[in-house]
Computed example of a mutant assay.
Amino acid sequence: MIVVTTFVLITSWALYNTACYLIDDMPMESQKQVQFQSALFDYLLLFSLFTVVIGSILHFYLTRKLIRPLRELIQSTQRIKEGLYPNPIQVHTNDEMGQLISHFNQLTQRLEANQTQRQRIVSDLSHEFRTPPLSNLNGYLSALKTGMIDGDPKLYQSLLDESKRLTKLIEQMEQLKEWDVESDLLVSRKEHVNIAVLVEQSIEMFRWLLNKEAIPYEIKAEKQQVEVNIQGVIQVMSNLLDNSIRYYQENGPIIIKGECVEKVYKISITGEGGQQIPLTDKQSIFERFYRVDHSRSRVLGGSGLGLAISKEIVERHNGKIGMISNGNLHTFWFTIPI
């Protein structure tokens, strides 16, 4: 404002003196020259004051418009520094400031989502490890130490099984973390492959178990070239097949079907389960550590991570995953874009 005022005053002074110099060389009465100089001075003074006032008002408005979002950014940054997550800042323009605020809002939302996810994982892990695997191990080991029970091969086998379940749970958590944190990199490792071959390979890994349990099965997979992360798709197939075998009831075969539906390739696995799945559970069955029957142990019910891992992998392929339940007949399906 000082610079603008100084500039206006210097310009007015220059105009005034130039005009006075020119008028002195003109044949004019002395009184008229004095009147002209006085009028010119008044006009220039009024013009200068008007320019300074209008310029100051415009400067104040534009500066406030520029500073306001900066102040909001500073306040929001301070809240993040304190461990809090502010509400998104309103964006009113598409200029550089608007773009900066938009990026800041996205960064804040991403940080908050990551923090919520970390807290949920830590909470879920604490619960899963504490009840019942570690509780069982601690109970049996304490009893063995105090001599309340005697060790025998059956007990040692039980402790070994519990330890293996803990190891499997940790491995599944590593898989889930891998697809959470490095998903963009992993999904970028795609290859063109006949997906019917992947279906066959996935079933081959379970063929010995299917034969051992005398579980009939049918396979019908159409050939189709797709671009996928091979290990990811095999992981999804393995998780769904494992669930079908785990809950299988001796009533009809497990049907594995692969078909082209519009612009996607749909893979479905259908089998008779041991119980009906309520509608409320259908919405949550793909969540982490979720079990339909909460009373089941991990020996039968699993860790509740298989479907969550499958959902993460399928969504990273821009596909969809879901289930259809009709009484005890359950169909789990997922799609991959062609």
Rank of each mutant, 00 (worst) to 15 (best):
L166N: 06
Q201M: 08
V52L: 02
L186E: 03
Q224C: 09
I230M: 08
I74P: 05
T6E: 15
E222D: 10
S244C: 06
I267F: 04
G147R: 02
N105L: 11
C20S: 15
L210K: 01
L22G: 15
K311N: 07
E191A: 07
T108A: 09
E222W: 13
S303Y: 07
S163H: 08
R120A: 15
G55W: 02
L9F: 12
S202H: 02
H330W: 14
I269M: 01
R118A: 10
L166H: 07
V299L: 12
L84P: 05
Y265R: 04
D25K: 12
Q275K: 10
Q115M: 14
P88W: 03
Y217W: 05
Q78H: 11
I336E: 06
G83K: 00
S268A: 02
G151M: 05
R207F: 02
T108F: 06
Q201W: 02
F50K: 07
I195H: 05
N114Q: 11
N251E: 15
K320E: 12
N94S: 15
L73N: 01
D124G: 14
I338K: 12
L169Q: 07
V228L: 04
E287I: 02
Q90L: 15
I170D: 10
I203P: 08
F104D: 00
N87W: 09
I256S: 00
P69S: 03
T77Q: 06
I321W: 00
S126P: 05
T335N: 06
L44M: 00
G327C: 06
